[in-house]
Every structure is written in C-alpha cells, then in structure tokens.
C-alpha cells in the first residue's frame, strides 16, 4: 500500500512535469522525456563524468577536515562547561553566517583553485558537525560515567569504553548533516568560480533548451541521495545498538 502510494506520487509528479514541460516548451521547462535523453547522453559523456568526479574530490576532502575538527571540538564543548563558554558564542555566530558572504574574501585569501572549494566546504560544514556532536555529548547520561568511575576507570578508559560508544551514532548523524552541507557548499563555491559542476551548470544555462541543466540537477540529486544513503547504511552497520540512524534527518 505504501509502495503503491509512493509510486503513484512519483508518477503523478512526472506526469504533471511532462504536461507542463510540453506546454511551456524546452526553453523554459524541458519535460522529463527530453531530460531523460540528456541524462543518458550525460552518462555516456566521459569528459563530463570526469569533471563531476574531479569536483567531488575537494568536497570530500573538506568534509573529512570538517569532521576531524568538528567532532573533537563538539565533544570537548559537551563535556567541559568552560570550553563551551569560550567556544559556543563563536560557533553559534558562524553557523548562522552564510558561507556565501565569506566567498569574496576567501577568493582574495586563497585564490580560486582547488583549495578554495575545500575552504568553503570546511567553513560551511564544520559548525554543523560541531553542534551535533556537542548536543549529543551534553546528553550523555551522567550515571554511565559515574559507574565507570566507581569501578576505577581511568579517564582514557572512560572515554574509550563509555563516551565513544554513546557518542558514536550521533557522530554519524553529525557527519551526515555535515555531508549534506558539504555538497551544498561545493556547488555554491563552484558556481562562484565557474568550475566543476558549477561550471557545467553555468554552461548548460547558456543553452536554449533547459534539458541539459535539468539533467545535471537530476545527476546532482543522485549524488546527494547516494552520499546520504551510504552514510546511513554505514551508521546501521557500525552501530547496530542504535537503530533509526538511517531515517532522513533534516539538518
């Protein structure tokens, strides 16, 4: 029943899109039939695939850097009120700051090369990773840590055997939110410097037909879904004691 409704929803959406597309024509809204043709062409275009792959690399590097900074920082903030008071004002300031605003000065500071995209990705995703980790670290049950202390666990032991397993599913949740923002800001950064996927989008927007542009949007959607789903699977596999990690969590 659920599956039937979902398929009906998708079919209706495609049907409305097709009708609207035929009505307005390719130049305003290409119907799914012509987008599908473009998508097949895109899949067979080795140069385009290489461009997509090459532009994903800085997003992944930036994402890993953001995790390496954000997770320890969030855990530290969650367990130490003093560090929290020191760092929290800055994190909450930067998390509401649009990374687009920082782009012009970043161009001056690091140029428009590969590292520019990495910098934008790090600066936009690190705060989400930090805050998610922080919120879960704050909520670790005191009693668990107390039990550890009663049995004479050292600080390192307490961290390794209590904190980490308790934090783990949340670290992955934070990583997922971070990854969503990493992909978003990658596209944003590339739109600014007109390279990679952003450059392809820009080029496609010069076409008279919108088919190629919409095909690119579908391709980006596929990448986003795949990345999100992959991390969800990883979460379920690595932390089976916490289920529901793969539910779609809004950032």
């Amino acid at each position: 029943m659920t599956l039937l409704l979902r398929l009906t929803g998708v079919a209706l959406f495609l049907l409305i899109w097709e009708i609207a597309g035929r009505h307005w024509g390719d130049s305003l809204l290409a119907p799914p039939s012509s987008v599908a043709v473009e998508l097949v062409a895109l899949a067979g275009d080795a140069a385009a695939l290489t461009t997509i792959w090459v532009s994903l690399a800085p997003a992944l590097v930036g994402f890993v850097i953001a995790c390496c900074i954000g997770m320890p920082l969030g855990a530290l903030m969650g367990r130490s009120p003093v560090w929290n008071a020191l760092i929290h004002p800055w994190v909450s300031l930067f998390v509401v700051t649009s990374v687009a605003a920082i782009v012009p000065i970043l161009i001056l500071l690091v140029g428009t090369g590969w590292w520019f995209v990495v910098a934008v990705v790090v600066l936009s995703s690190v705060w989400y990773v930090t805050l998610t980790t922080y919120q879960s670290a704050v909520r670790i049950d005191r009693r668990w840590l107390d039990v550890g202390r009663s049995f004479g666990a050292s600080r390192l032991q307490a961290f390794r055997t209590i904190m980490l397993p308790a934090l783990f599913p949340y670290l992955l949740a934070g990583a997922r939110i971070g990854l969503v923002h990493a992909i978003r800001s990658m596209v944003l950064a590339q739109l600014f410097i007109v390279s990679g996927i952003g450059g392809m989008l820009n080029e496609a927007s010069m076409d008279i037909s919108t088919a190629r542009m919409l095909a690119l949007l579908v391709a980006i959607m596929g990448i986003g879904l795949l990345a999100n789903h992959g991390l969800g699977r990883l979460a379920d596999g690595l932390a089976p004691w916490q289920t529901g990690g793969s539910a779609s969590t809004p950032p």
Binding site: L5, T8, G9, V10, V187, L188, L201, M213, M221, G224
Partner: peptide
C-alpha cells in the same frame, strides 16, 4: 505523506544553489 515523500526527498537532496541557473531562466 506517502505520495509526497519520495519527491521531496529527491528535491531536498539537490543543493539549493544548483537551482540558481534555472531560476535565472525563469
């Protein structure tokens, strides 16, 4: 919910900035 869910999950996975060239056309 069930009818809209797959469509919205899909659109949500697209970075908002990627829509900008399309919005310029419109």
């Amino acid at each position: 919910r069930e009818m809209l869910h797959p469509i919205l999950t899909g659109i949500y996975a697209i970075p908002p900035a990627a829509f900008i060239p399309f919005l310029i056309v419109w």
